[in-house]
Design a protein around this nucleic acid. Structure first.
Lengths: 330, 330
DNA sequence: GCGACATCTGTTAACGCTAACATGCAACGG
DNA sequence: CCGTTGCATGTTAGCGTTAACAGATGTCGC
């Protein structure tokens, strides 16, 4: 920086002013400084800047170590938005579960880095236990978690999506609609089941048949084998597309035609859903927008330093494909 | 730090020595300092440390913005290994392509952060154009790219995997083995095709039938429709599992039985592969190990500051399932 | 018992940047 | 024509840490 100042014939402070877009620099001076920066290939030292300002323009992103469609897509959405806003993203992945200890470790790491704020992708019920240990002195946005907590949140309205799926099936004349739920440690699993129940309750139908999976196709397959035996069931709402794939496979193996005998609806709209056999009716979530909006929430907290807890909800939408049809028979 | 020093009744430099494990600190003094640190909840300021040492204990991770199985799994593997080694990971995602401009931007960002080194997940042929613009003053490890370049690399042996898949089909008696390739902009697509060709050439067979997809199930479906018409083809090696799913769907629709009429092999061993209809024979890659090993390579460069370009290759392995069978008929 | 040496601890000066204040100079009004 | 104002720029200090050197204390040999 001193070198740049010397080349431009100004003081280092003027260079700093140019770098930070300070208004009171004469255009001619600014141009000379910029030329010197260019000539010397100067890049400001962010560590020094962070030291003196106390801000790092880095934000922490804590996520589960999962390749599941949702969290990964959200991660990229956040990274892109952060980059466009001039922030760096420091990622810390937790293991396969969120416990207070590992979450605290992750936050300690990020706090040591003096991150401006933290975005937490916390889709597990265990996050409800872990969240109280979150520091209140650091701006935090929780994505896909914390339904009642004290933090700003951004979520997709899982309940509404599940309800839409269920109502779609009811509209097709189905009366016995089973559910293949996600693992109970995932909040989304609960919310989707709740949406399914709400949809059924509105139509005066019973929510008796619930099978529990673990998001994998394998578990869906096992649920599908059980469903194939339940002749009264004419429709299934499956809590994610991967499990729906397993359900389709099992029903196919057992000679139960989809959608003629049983309708199947998934959740997520992964890229492959359109190419399942048959192509899958499912609920689409815009994870990319979720990422962008949750960054906005964090930046809003940083800018205004207001402590208003904002809750941002994004609406999912039903995608109708070939795995659902009107109920046949009486 | 000054506060800690005061509480412990020592100078701030002694605190620094305790923090950095300097040997010449009396155990009693060390204990007092540690107690003071604990009491005050002191956390060292990494920005200040980075400023004075010139090292940030952060490493940059540049990756494509993709939810594809491989890159994401590699990312987590690297993050976990970095965390265990006491490093932070700053992620920069490129768009959907690697061009010299965006790569240079990403590196400029990371260099501004004074990262210790960069790991680049660069599985595109365009990375061959972009890589020469990489800085040589920064330790770099390239994952899944740069077959002939000047950088340390960690890769899965795609050719060997493809060859194993092809030889498996040849061993089952197949003589006309088609290939559904990945998009030409991906290095892995070329390597897998090369492995297929090499396997065929060794057996004196022709590699005539190549269809090109884009990794998606949709493109696999279209390739599958074309394959269904080619009655001479009795086996297909598909360059990834998602496309293989599309192929299976198309063959099923057109009434071509798998594996009775046509055998299908995929690549990647995604979690769902076992639950395709029929379950998919495929080539398993250990992306997690890939991540760990590539971090090791980077740390090795940092420690020894040797400029020996290491190339680390991980062997994939064939997983036999139900989508392949011995050729029927004459 | 006194200098030489090892061991532990303290002092000072950076690292590169920004904030706060100080200065110089032009424009302006009375 | 001079004090006041406002703009552009320079000067100084300090962010929290480590490196380099300086000092204090104890230990040992002769």
């Amino acid at each position: 920086m001193t070198d740049v100042a010397r080349v431009a014939g100004v003081s280092h402070q003027t260079v700093s002013r140019v770098l930070n877009g300070h208004p009171s620099v004469r255009p001619a001076t600014r141009a000379r400084v910029l030329a010197a920066i260019e000539e010397l290939g100067y890049r400001p030292n962010l560590a020094a800047r962070a030291l003196v300002t106390g801000r790092s323009r880095t934000l922490g992103l804590v996520t589960l170590e999962t390749t599941l469609f949702g969290p990964v897509t959200t991660l990229y959405g956040i990274e892109r938005a952060a980059r466009e806003a001039g922030y760096f993203v420091s990622v810390v992945s937790l293991g396969t579960a969120i416990d207070p200890g590992s979450l605290e470790d992750a936050l300690a790491r990020l706090r040591a880095q003096r991150v401006a704020g933290v975005i937490l992708i916390a889709p597990l019920t265990s996050s409800l236990l872990a969240l109280p240990s979150l520091p209140i002195d650091l701006p935090v946005v929780v994505v896909e978690g914390d339904p009642d907590g004290a933090f700003a949140t951004a979520t997709v309205d899982q309940r509404a999506g599940a309800r839409a799926a269920t109502e779609h099936l009811i509209g097709l004349g189905h009366r016995v609609i089973a559910h293949v739920a996600g693992p109970p440690e995932w909040l989304e699993a609960h919310q989707r089941e709740a949406g399914w129940r709400a949809g059924l309750a509105d139509a005066g139908l019973a929510g008796d048949v619930v099978l529990v999976g673990d998001w994998t196709a394998r578990s869906g397959y096992q649920a599908g084998l059980a469903l194939a035996e339940m002749t009264e069931v004419t429709a299934v709402f499956v809590a994610n597309d991967h499990m729906a794939l397993g359900v389709l496979r099992a029903l196919h193996e057992r000679g139960r035609a989809v959608p003629e005998e049983i309708s199947v609806v998934g959740f997520d709209d992964i890229g492959e859903a359109e190419y399942f056999t048959p192509s899958l009716t499912t609920v689409h979530q815009d994870f990319d927008e979720l990422g962008r909006r949750s960054l906005d929430l964090l930046l809003c907290q940083l800018d205004s330093s207001n402590s208003v807890v904002e809750r941002l909800v994004i609406a999912p939408r039903l995608i109708e494909r070939r795995s659902t049809a009107a109920r046949e028979g009486p």
